[in-house]
């Protein structure tokens, strides 16, 4: 109900947005594919905010990871269903090592990195306001000043989901 009201309120100025979620796989350059949850919001002006969450837990450690990017997205020339985006992104790792510290408890570390976000997606229309979306996003992280050597860290996700236009 509230979303319908919001949609009506925004439509006179030609503003629309799409919200969606889905799942897929993500890899952080360590040759492992982890399952992930992918959520996004995209405006009719092409501004895209996407977050990919993943995590893993075993007897030694637990890690939660968020890969987010804010990008400008545009249809590929002469294509109605293919889009590409460019923007900035970041990765946040929260790692808890399951070891008993002298003072008790486990040690937790938070690490982060930021870089260039590039992506490609296929988003066919399924219904009046419903769209499917297959997203392939990548984040290129320059390790300090070594960008002059073109060396980058790399993470990428491949996900599929459904989005709703408001």
């Amino acid at each position: 109900m509230s979303l319908s009201v919001l949609s009506c309120a925004l439509s006179p100025v030609g503003f629309a947005f799409e919200i969606g979620t889905g799942g897929g796989m993500v890899t952080y350059g360590d040759d492992r594919a982890l399952p992930c949850l992918h959520s996004w919001m995209q405006t009719s002006f092409g501004v895209l905010l996407a977050i990919t969450n993943s995590g893993e837990k075993n007897s030694a450690f637990a890690q939660q990871t968020a890969l987010a990017h804010l990008s400008y997205s545009q249809n590929l020339p002469r294509s109605r269903v293919l889009e590409a985006n460019i923007g900035v992104g970041a990765i946040l790792f929260r790692t808890t090592v399951n070891q008993t510290l002298p003072e008790g408890g486990a040690s937790t570390a938070l690490s982060r990195a930021a870089g260039l976000a590039l992506g490609l997606r296929w988003k066919p229309e399924l219904g009046r306001n419903l769209r499917a979306r297959v997203s392939w996003d990548a984040l290129y992280v320059p390790p300090g000043y070594s960008a002059v050597y073109l060396a980058f860290g790399h993470a990428q996700s491949l996900s599929a989901g459904l989005g709703w236009d408001f």
């Binding site: 350059g29 360590d30 040759d31 050597y149 073109l150 060396a151 980058f152 860290g153």
Partner: peptide
Amino acid sequence: GGSLGLGNGHSNAA
């Protein structure tokens, strides 16, 4: 030509 990442952690310098 440039820098190549071969899936073994990170890319090499150019």
